[in-house]
């Protein structure tokens, strides 16, 4: 699966995360901003990476601005961003 165009999901409200996905060439590259990066940075990146890989996407640039989101929120926002970036009209039930 390939990313067709840049897509964004999520807000900058507290307890949310904003995920911006765009085409990449060098695996999944994540640029993460977070106040809790020291304690949860690895975990946040892992959740984002897992979702993208579940879609069979191998290359992507991810800009993530985290405002203290829980894993369920990170997963939901990443799924939405991927769906938008591949112009999907139906949910990918296997990923959910």
């Amino acid at each position: 699966m390939e990313i067709k165009h840049t897509a964004i999901a999520g807000t900058l409200e507290s307890s949310d995360i904003q995920i911006m996905l765009s085409q990449g060439t060098n695996g999944i590259e994540i640029n993460l901003e977070s106040d809790v990066i020291k304690q949860f940075g690895d975990q946040i990146k892992q959740v984002i990476t897992d979702v993208i890989k579940d879609y069979g996407i191998d290359n992507a640039k991810v800009k993530a601005v985290d405002k203290g989101a829980l894993d369920c929120v990170i997963k939901a926002r990443t799924i939405t961003a991927v769906q938008r970036s591949i112009d999907a009209t139906e949910p990918n039930w296997e990923v959910l």
């Binding site: 020291k38 304690q39 949860f40 940075g41 829980l70 894993d71």
Partner: peptide
């Protein structure tokens, strides 16, 4: 359970 396990500060 809500937030997950935090990595210890350094």
């Amino acid at each position: 359970k809500i937030v997950g396990e935090a990595k210890p500060l350094e």
